[in-house]
């Protein structure tokens, strides 16, 4: 039981659960905005898995392996850009503009 209770494994499993919830949100929700939120939850879950991997890889004086952390930072920024583009498209759909 103790193996599963280290923070890295616990948050890893939490990440896996979040991936499931996020994927369910993206696929099954009818509203487009809810799908974008689902994508963000899915991304958060994936980054938690990265976090767990980083925490397991602690060594050489660092609490966590810096490489996956850098990957997550880049991932978060890319996910934000994707959400921004999706939101802009969603707003374009919602505004009644004569087709220019």
């Amino acid at each position: 039981m103790t193996v599963a209770l280290q923070p890295s494994v616990l948050f890893g499993l939490c990440g896996a659960a979040l991936v499931g919830i996020g994927l369910f949100a993206v696929v099954s929700s009818p509203g487009l905005l809810r799908r974008i939120v689902g994508c963000n939850i899915l991304g958060a879950g994936i980054f938690l898995v990265f976090g767990a991997v980083a925490r397991r890889g602690a060594g050489a004086g660092f609490e966590a392996d810096p490489v996956p952390q850098a990957l997550v930072i880049t991932g978060i920024v890319v996910a934000f850009s994707a959400s921004a583009l999706a939101v802009a498209l969603l707003k374009r759909l919602a505004e009644p503009r004569s087709d220019a």
């Binding site: 994927l23 993206v26 487009l32 994508c39 899915l42 994707a82 999706a86 498209l89 759909l93």
Partner: peptide, 12 residues
Amino acid sequence: LRYLLFALIGSL
């Protein structure tokens, strides 16, 4: 938008 969302799921 549909392309972006589906491609996003793929990338994630």
